[in-house]
C-alpha cells in the first residue's frame, strides 16, 4: 500500500497555488488535511502527478464573523470549528455537528474546505452547508466565483469545483434571532460514516408579526431547512418534510405529516450495511428526534 510517485509542491500564497493549478490542471490535486486523499492515493485509486500542499497558505485559515456573516477559511480544521465560540454564536449547527465527524485525530487534521471539496455523501459538513445556505468561494487564475451550497454538491465526490480552482473560504449567514439548529446522526460505530444523518435550522416563534413570549414547546416553526445525508449521492434538502411543518406547531400529527412527506423528498440509496427501507425508516426516526429536540430543547 504505497502511493504512486508524485511531485510535491508547498506554496505559501493563494496566488502560487493558482499558478500551479493553472499549470498542472487535473494532473494536480490540492492536499489539505489529506484524510481522504492520502488513503485513496495509498490504495492507488488516486495517482495525481502533483500534490499541491496548501497547509502553509496562512490566508486560507481562520474563522471570522462580520456584519451577520461567518467566514470560515478552507484550511480551518474540524477541531477548530468544534472549539470556536464564534462558530457557536453564529452557526451553532456547525458546533453541534463537529463532534460527529470521525475521530479526534481526524478532526485535528481534516479541514472544513477539504471535507466540502471531497463531498463524501455520508459526511456532515456538506449537509450543514446546504442547510445554512452557505456560499462557497472559489478562485482560479481566471478569476473568482461564488457557488451556493445547494448547487455545489453534484454527486458522490463530485462538486462544482473546476480542476484549476481552489476553494478558499465559505461564507455563512449568521443565525437569526429566534432561530434554532438541530443535528442528529445514526452510525454503526461512533465516528463512522453516517448511515443516515440530518441537519436542521429554523425559527420557532409566534406566527404573527408581533410575537409573544414563548415557553419551550410553544410556538410555530418557520423557515425550516432540513438536509439529510448518507441517503443519496449528495445532501438532500427535505423540502416536502419542511413544508409539512411550516407555520405549524410541532405535535404528533404535524411530525407524522413531515415524516410521511420524506419519500417525496428522496428514496434512500442502500449502502453496504443498510437497505433503502431501513434508511428511510431511520430518516423518519431521526427527523422526529431532531425536531423534538429543536422544538423543546435548547434554542440556538
Amino acid at each position: 500500500m504505497k502511493a504512486a510517485r508524485f511531485d510535491y509542491i508547498r506554496p505559501r500564497t493563494v496566488q502560487e497555488v493558482l499558478d500551479h493549478l493553472a499549470e498542472h490542471g487535473d494532473e494536480a490535486k490540492v492536499i489539505a488535511g489529506g484524510q481522504s486523499l492520502v488513503p485513496t492515493m495509498n490504495v492507488r485509486l488516486a495517482a495525481p502527478a502533483v500534490l499541491i500542499d496548501i497547509n502553509h497558505v496562512e490566508e486560507l485559515s481562520g474563522i471570522e464573523a462580520d456584519k451577520g456573516t461567518l467566514r470560515i477559511g478552507a484550511l480551518t480544521r474540524h477541531a477548530e470549528i468544534a472549539a470556536s465560540e464564534t462558530v457557536a454564536a453564529h452557526a451553532p449547527l456547525l458546533s453541534m455537528a463537529a463532534p460527529w465527524i470521525a475521530h479526534e485525530a481526524i478532526r485535528n487534521r481534516g479541514t472544513f474546505g477539504g471535507s466540502l471539496a471531497t463531498a463524501d455523501p455520508a459526511s456532515e459538513w456538506p449537509a450543514c452547508a446546504t442547510v445554512l445556505d452557505a456560499t462557497i468561494h472559489l478562485v482560479s487564475a481566471r478569476g473568482t466565483r461564488q457557488v451556493a451550497a445547494g448547487d455545489f454538491f453534484q454527486g458522490v465526490y463530485e462538486t462544482a469545483i473546476e480542476p484549476d480552482e481552489l476553494l478558499t473560504h465559505v461564507e455563512i449567514p449568521a443565525i437569526g434571532e429566534g432561530y434554532r439548529a438541530g443535528f442528529s446522526e445514526f452510525a454503526r460505530r461512533k465516528g463512522d460514516y453516517a448511515s443516515v444523518g440530518v441537519a436542521v435550522q429554523g425559527r420557532v416563534g409566534a406566527s404573527g408579526a408581533i410575537g409573544r413570549l414563548l415557553k419551550r414547546g410553544e410556538g410555530r416553526l418557520h423557515d425550516l431547512r432540513i438536509a439529510f445525508f448518507g441517503v443519496a449521492a449528495r445532501p438532500m434538502l427535505a423540502t416536502a418534510a419542511a413544508a409539512a411543518l411550516e407555520e405549524q406547531p410541532l405535535d404528533e400529527s404535524t411530525l407524522k405529516a413531515a415524516q410521511e412527506a420524506l419519500p417525496t423528498d428522496f428514496t434512500p440509496m442502500e449502502d453496504l450495511y443498510m437497505s433503502s427501507a431501513a434508511k428511510a425508516h431511520l430518516a423518519r426516526v431521526l427527523l422526529g428526534r431532531v425536531m423534538t429536540t429543536l422544538y423543546h430543547g435548547e434554542g440556538r
Binding site: 448511515s195 450495511y273 443498510m274 437497505s275 431501513a278 428511510a280 425508516h281
Partner: peptide
C-alpha cells in the same frame, strides 16, 4: 446483530 436485522425482526422495515 445489525440495526438492519433488528429492525427487520421488529417488523419496522
Amino acid at each position: 446483530m445489525t440495526p438492519e436485522r433488528i429492525l427487520t425482526a421488529l417488523g419496522r422495515i
